[in-house]
Amino acid sequence: MPASPEIRTALLESDLLDALMVPARQGEFARDSRAFVRLDTSLRAYWHTLFDICPELLSLSGPDGLAIFRPFMAWAAERQLSMNWTYYLWVHRWLQQSPFADRLSPQLTLSLMAASAARWAMGDRGPNGGIALGSAELPELVVAWKCHTVTGGREVECLSLEEPLPPPEGGFGWFTLPGFELDNFPGWSPIPQ
């Protein structure tokens, strides 16, 4: 039987930072503590960011999502994934090597690509106007544009080009668009960690 982990008393954020995105570490803190609830609040934010945007994942994992969420977050922590806009693309990469691998559909792949593109369009603060994502396995291009009118929001499109771009090497690729026109292809960049 494994020794039960030491229960920690945390009072400051710095005691918690390492555990804020690692579900397995929540158990190191007393269940009836403020720290435990603060960790729970943090973990829920990652959960909702994934499953509220891509609820179809729940049909793979079951309604609590934990069969995907827990192992993915552990895998992400091992690789120190940044959890930036590429979150959903890394979930896809994880799914491909998971017990769910044979249940992945092109629709799910496109949905995860659209979610990542949208997250870029919402959160990126650089000067570019849009992002395009491609997959080696699908002909479509997913493009997202930042909000650029006062009444608008970000926009996401799934495009089939008459002359398809060369496929990215190994999984997904991306490039940014300086304006609001899909008018150049600078080549694919690999998905950052």
Binding site: L12, E13, S14, L16, L17, D18, L20, M21, T41, S42, A45, Y46, T49, Q80, L81, S82, M83, N84
Partner: peptide, 17 residues
């Protein structure tokens, strides 16, 4: 606020020390 920890994004921001 703290938006990242060791290069990883915090989705519920943390308070600085």
């Amino acid at each position: 606020a703290r938006f990242t920890h060791e290069g990883r994004q915090l989705y519920h921001l943390a308070e600085p020390e």
